[in-house]
Design a binder for these strands. Sequence first.
DNA 1: TGCCCAAATGACACCGCTACCATTTTTTGA
DNA 2: TCAAAAAATGGTAGCGGTGTCATTTGGGCA
Lengths: 343, 343
Amino acid sequence: MERKQPLSGKVRLTEVAQLAGVSPITASRFFRNPNALSAGKRERVESAAKELGYVPNLAARALASHRSEVIGVLIPSLTNNVFADMLRGVYDASDGGRYSVQLANTRYSNFQEERLLRIFHGQKPAGLIVTGINQTPESRAVMRNMNCPIVQVMEIGPEPIDMMVGFSHSDAAFAAVSHLIERGYTRIGFVGARMDPRGQRRFDGYRDAMKAASLFNQRYVITTLSPSTVPLGGILLSDLVTKAPDIDAVFCINDDIALGVLFECQRRQIAVPEQLAIVGFNDLEFMGSAVPSLTSVRTNRYEMGRKAIEMLTAAMDGHPPQERVVDLGFEIMARGSSLPRRT
Amino acid sequence: MERKQPLSGKVRLTEVAQLAGVSPITASRFFRNPNALSAGKRERVESAAKELGYVPNLAARALASHRSEVIGVLIPSLTNNVFADMLRGVYDASDGGRYSVQLANTRYSNFQEERLLRIFHGQKPAGLIVTGINQTPESRAVMRNMNCPIVQVMEIGPEPIDMMVGFSHSDAAFAAVSHLIERGYTRIGFVGARMDPRGQRRFDGYRDAMKAASLFNQRYVITTLSPSTVPLGGILLSDLVTKAPDIDAVFCINDDIALGVLFECQRRQIAVPEQLAIVGFNDLEFMGSAVPSLTSVRTNRYEMGRKAIEMLTAAMDGHPPQERVVDLGFEIMARGSSLPRRT
DNA sequence: TGCCCAAATGACACCGCTACCATTTTTTGA
DNA sequence: TCAAAAAATGGTAGCGGTGTCATTTGGGCA
């Protein structure tokens, strides 16, 4: 007696072809390019596949075709909300499609990134999403070898490997600091943690804006390489007010730091924004709820993920997008923590 | 015609074996079970692989061996920090090992969960991690069919499908509310959002603790099915104080809600904890930094992910753990927002 | 009607690795 | 010392699809 395996799929393409009365290769074509079959065979194969509950063996397909249907995604951190938001866009946009997402975590290490890229290279992915624009020459070499569309996300810059979706972190930071200057603040501090390449460029934007207004002063700057957390924001503010008690505003490298700064101000009874204005970066959901509500720079992280997948799938399907670099921009969300300074 | 692709540097197992002076099958064994080789050949194969930069072709391996080296992970949300923390543990523990992680997002939908399980089923994963204990009978049936070790994470309960790592959400909530009662609070509200199965059980813990002290009052409860966010915490508190102005404490279903509640208190000039004590759940990093610092229930989310992978790999390697249900417990982190009530 | 070209279909080999079993070498023990 | 058992190694045959042709079929047009 025959043991039925309704889900484990002992059904191969050959069985489908047999039932449909065609050759295996024709059945194979049905799944890759249905329009290549005549209407009659198309229907026969379709119903045969359905009847048998055929599930293609992806490993066999990948082996024979020299390509998988995997989109590799490299991000530096899973903890950071910013990447989680982007990932959500990636998963939402790829959901239901034929490509599956394979995630890998570089932990902000170029060495890890290179290693992971080599692994992906071995899998022959259909597409690749990498974070940022600061890949090592070796990483770039591996990617150029990979023979699949690639999108760099989170930021844009010159010399895309293939495609890009993001925004200019330095422009965004420049705009945020300019906002503070317009509002009448002059002794504006910079509070930075992690200082990854994007953080670095936010600092550049801060510095340029300050220099443009002849307000730059190294004393106002405090940074650390430690991962940014809310508690760290408090610690850094403490250090900064010790070092530069005259500051009247701070631009924080991200919202976690900004929240830590706000809490530290509450603890020290520093009035926000009367004694110290605060501006964050990313506009996480809590920024609008804080007391006072915190000014931040909105970035379209979810859209970045979506757009990256859209560009990738378009390219994989043979329609590479016209615009290879997409700027999703940013928006200054002016709130209570940066009200115009009272003179 | 030659079918060979000019794919640069295509190193196959055969090349490695040739350089090492062994047969391909021996080289193959090196990667699966190095101890099966004699010391001399083991070293030769190892250095040959390194020299050529060999990367195994996973598709070929999966096809030939009838099993993939993929661990499927099903989580309900990418936005929620709680799952991101667990995932970090998963990725950290599986990093460098032979298994790769395949993530899928159920979006809190049983239907999606079922669908994704069927897809995983077709890929013959080496192991599976699913969130929670509320799978539908259909989902459980698919999993039982899957013939691989399975770990349910985030909570524990009766009737594990295979293995479990987590803690009791109702016990944790019970302890948190008991903490408030011990500190002298009596009119304790419950602020809940999303109300997924785990949220539901936290409510159960709250209700049981209140009933045990004869303090339960439906008026003190406010819940919504909307996803929990910081702003929502503020809105819900507003509703609650309107409905029950006499409350002297709130137990929040998670820390995001708790933060929103704190901000709303600051906005309304409600003194914390003098007029209203606050307790959250999960102990996210910002809880200790807030002003006042916020009491919460620490849960070992990162450890959950790690442990799940450890149990899975142990089982896959033929050493199923003795304890099939692991309770990682919780800890009440008593802070400023729940100081003993002044009488 | 006949010719030609494009569309539809099929034959065959092979992708890179491992299961299975056969064979050789080494170790063990009486 | 030598046979038997164990360990190490190798040969063969696919796993389940698809690339690359070659071949058949069908339709348009002079």
